[in-house]
Computed example of a mutant assay.
Amino acid sequence: MPSDPSKFLVELPSELIPILDQLGFGQTSNERVIISIAIGLYTGHVVSLARAAEIAGKTLHQFIDILRQRNISWIHYDEAEFADDAGFVKEFMSDSGHEHHEGSSV
Rank of each mutant, 00 (worst) to 15 (best):
Ile19Trp: 10
Leu12Val: 04
Ser36Leu: 03
Lys90Ala: 10
Gly26Leu: 02
Asn30Tyr: 09
Ile17Cys: 03
Ile34Met: 08
Ala83Gln: 10
Val47Ser: 01
Ala50Lys: 13
Lys58Ser: 02
Phe8Ala: 09
Leu16Ile: 10
Gly97Asn: 03
Arg51Gln: 15
Ile39His: 01
Gly24Ala: 03
Ala52Met: 07
Glu15Asn: 14
Gly97Gln: 04
Glu79Gln: 11
Ala83Tyr: 03
Gly26Ile: 02
Ile55Lys: 06
Val47Arg: 03
Ile55Asp: 03
Phe63Asp: 00
Ile37Ser: 07
Glu54Gln: 13
His45Arg: 14
Tyr77Met: 11
Ser48Pro: 07
Ile39Met: 01
Leu12Glu: 06
Gln62Gly: 06
Glu11Met: 12
Thr43Gly: 02
His98Phe: 10
Pro18Phe: 15
Glu99Arg: 11
Ala83Thr: 12
Glu31Trp: 00
Leu67Met: 05
Ala86Lys: 10
Asp95Ile: 10
Arg68Cys: 03
Gly26Gln: 09
Leu67Ser: 00
Arg51Pro: 04
His76Gly: 03
Gly87Tyr: 05
His100Phe: 09
Thr43Val: 13
His45Ser: 15
Glu102Gly: 04
Asn30Ser: 14
Glu81Leu: 12
Met93Ser: 03
Leu12Phe: 11
Glu99Trp: 08
Glu11Asn: 11
Thr28Asn: 07
Phe63Pro: 01
Pro5Ser: 08
Tyr77Leu: 13
Leu20Val: 06
Ala50Phe: 05
Met1Lys: 06
Ile75Trp: 04
Asn30Pro: 01
Pro13Met: 06
Gly26Glu: 11
Ser29Cys: 06
Asp65Phe: 01
Gln22Tyr: 09
Ala50Thr: 12
Glu79Leu: 15
Arg32Phe: 02
Arg70Glu: 05
Ile72Pro: 05
Lys58His: 06
Phe8Val: 09
Ile35Asn: 00
Ile75Phe: 02
Val33Gly: 04
Ser105Asn: 14
His100Pro: 02
Tyr77Arg: 05
Gly44Arg: 08
Leu49Ala: 09
Glu11Tyr: 08
Ser36Pro: 00
Leu16Val: 13
Met93Gly: 00
Glu79Asn: 11
Asp4Met: 02
Ile75Thr: 11
Glu81Val: 10
Asp84Gln: 14
Pro2Ile: 04
Phe82Thr: 10
Gln62Phe: 03
Asp84Lys: 12
Ser105Asp: 14
Leu16Glu: 13
Ser96Asp: 01
Ser36Trp: 00
Phe25His: 13
Gly97Pro: 01
Val10Lys: 04
Gln62Lys: 08
Ser14Gln: 13
Thr43Trp: 02
Glu81Asp: 12
Ser48Glu: 12
Val46Met: 15
Ile55Pro: 02
Gly24Met: 00
Thr59Leu: 01
His100Thr: 13
Glu91Met: 10
Met1Ile: 11
Asp95Phe: 12
Ile55Gln: 05
Ser14Phe: 09
Lys90Ser: 09
Pro18Gln: 06
His76Ala: 08
Pro2Asp: 11
Ala56Gln: 07
Ser36Val: 02
Asp21Ser: 14
Asp21Lys: 14
Glu31Arg: 06
Phe88Asp: 07
Ser29His: 14
Glu102Lys: 07
Tyr42Lys: 07
Leu41Arg: 15
Ile72His: 10
Glu102Ile: 13
Ile17Tyr: 06
Arg32Thr: 04
Ile64Gly: 00
Phe88Leu: 12
Asp84Ile: 13
Ile17Glu: 12
Phe88Tyr: 11
